[in-house]
Design a protein around this nucleic acid. Structure first.
Length: 271
DNA sequence: ACCTAAACCTGGGCGC
DNA sequence: TGCGCCCAGGTTTAGG
């Protein structure tokens, strides 16, 4: 999934379903997924559901929070007496809540994780302390320009570097670069002021579209209510190898690997 | 400082 | 149907 728009979609729904509810039990089927600290969550009442980059943060009223990273195949799904169980053979953690609510963490590849932290330490001492600014919140055009000017590495690598900028992954990096007509291999500090501004707007645009369509269910991702997102029907470049470019109609998308990740480019638009 | 490959795991899709 | 191979929304780490 699990880039900013997918996690944000889940966060919004969890906020609706979890806040004000108490955690009664936590059953861990995969210790790799949730190695320690589950007992600190027992009896805690959820006060907020936050997100930083691709990480979900659930805060409790007892001084603890838990962080969830979905990596590639994680699913966070809520069910209640009115919504049927979403458990499956990839269910790694089951949280039981009051009033019959349940929260499932499903993850085929077991790359995802759940970690417990003291709420006051989340921002400065947890995984999220290493994350760069959020494109839809803390980032400004000026700050974005400063980030790009400080590196000669390929622009696509910088967009996906969570320490520089948090939340953008492979789908939205590919789409934003196509929308901005910028070649992914371009050195970040080679972009002109005009290109930088266009790219900044393109990032905001594709992320907002991702949220509007409730994320991209290309593979495993589903919303917290167990439904598929629709952004995969609106991909601009991602996954379009050999397809004609929807903008210039002349180019045919090529695919190559950059930084080990599939990269999709219209050779005509993205010189 | 930067790059690549490999590692962590498992399933889905494709060709044969 | 089955088998082998390649691919996958992420991140970390080892080695050059």
């Amino acid at each position: 999934m699990p880039e900013l728009p997918e996690v944000e979609t889940i966060r919004t729904q969890l906020e609706k379903h979890l806040v004000g509810h108490r955690i009664l039990s936590v059953a861990v089927a995969s210790l790799k997924t949730f190695p320690q600290g589950k007992e600190k969550l027992l009896g805690g009442k959820v006060t907020s559901a936050r997100r930083l980059g691709k990480v979900l943060i659930i805060d409790l009223d007892n001084g603890f929070s838990f962080l969830i990273h979905l990596k590639l195949t994680g699913q966070v799904v809520y069910s209640s007496s009115r919504i049927p169980n979403q458990t499956n053979k990839f269910t790694r953690v089951v949280f039981k809540l009051d009033k019959g609510g349940k929260l499932f963490f499903n993850d085929s590849r077991k790359f995802g994780w759940v970690r417990v932290e003291e709420t006051r330490k989340v921002a400065e001492e947890s995984f999220v302390s290493r994350l760069g600014p959020e494109p839809l919140r803390d980032l400004t055009g000026q700050r974005f320009a400063a980030i790009l000017s400080s590196s000669r590495r390929p622009i696509k690598i910088i967009l996906m570097d969570q320490a520089k900028l948090s939340g953008v992954g492979n789908i939205y990096a590919n789409d934003a670069l196509w929308l901005a007509k910028i070649n992914p291999k371009r050195s970040a500090n080679s972009l002109t002021a005009k290109e930088t501004k266009i790219l900044y707007k393109a990032i905001v645009k594709v992320l907002k579209d991702g949220i509007k369509y409730q994320g991209a269910s290309d593979q495993w991702y589903v919303t917290a209510e167990g439904k598929k997102g629709n952004y995969q029907e609106h991909f601009l470049a991602y996954g379009k190898k050999d397809e004609p470019c929807g903008r210039c109609r002349k180019g045919k998308f090529i695919k190559y690997f950059l930084g080990g990740r599939g990269t999709y480019v219209c050779p005509v638009c993205q010189k």
